[in-house]
Design a protein around this nucleic acid. Structure first.
Lengths: 98, 98
DNA sequence: ACATTATTTCGGTATTTAGCGAAATACAGA
DNA sequence: TCTGTATTTCGCTAAATACCGAAATAATGT
């Protein structure tokens, strides 16, 4: 999952992850602390979910977000892949432009 | 340096890094293999240099790019900081939006 | 000084991203 | 079913990013 990097490239999203590291939180709680609109937050959550960095659990009307620490392993492996000595990155799919 | 993530978020840039892992290359060599314009490549190189992921060395008219593996350590530390158990990330500077 | 080669900067367009507020959806309780 | 609360989706705008080709810059050799 390469777009973990994209997910991590936003300061707002990194902040969300840092908050989630401390404890699970609902979207509303996070929105309050970050003075960013809830709709904007929702977009960030989608990015984080797509990257599999957070998991959600619904409890009534509220949805609680939790950090998915297991993905980090994959990410570190990916980084090690780029900078390490294996030869897997040649198959990283060309961008297919022109 | 947080924008290492931004630098790594582009598939083209990851590919450049993977190529550079194999051997040092000039901008022209990389441009040939990636079928992306040289001017575009130049932009990517700036991003990679800003993130300190590559170093350059001029030899006559050609500039050779090399991978700067030492930055990876910092990056992994940053990742560990977000997902680990220290409490440093609260100080990640608020985005100063509104 | 001129020509050649390598790389970058410049001007431009198209796509993506972040952000907002308002409306829509989802759920639970009365 | 209606109300209230929580979250997401829907236009929309502004800023950033990627891309190109052409022109400019840098370095070297003649």
């Amino acid at each position: 999952m390469a777009d973990v990097f994209h997910a991590l490239s936003s300061p707002v999203r990194r902040k969300i992850l840092a908050m989630l590291k401390a404890r699970d939180m609902t979207a509303g709680e996070i929105a309050e602390q970050l003075d960013v609109g809830k709709s904007t937050l929702s977009g960030h959550f989608n990015v984080l979910k797509s990257a599999d960095l957070v998991t959600t659990e619904r409890s009534g009307t509220t949805i609680t977000y939790s950090l998915n620490t297991s993905v980090v392993e994959e990410m570190l492996a990916l980084v090690a892949g780029i900078f390490g000595t294996n030869d897997e990155e040649g198959s990283q799919s060309n961008d297919g432009k022109a």
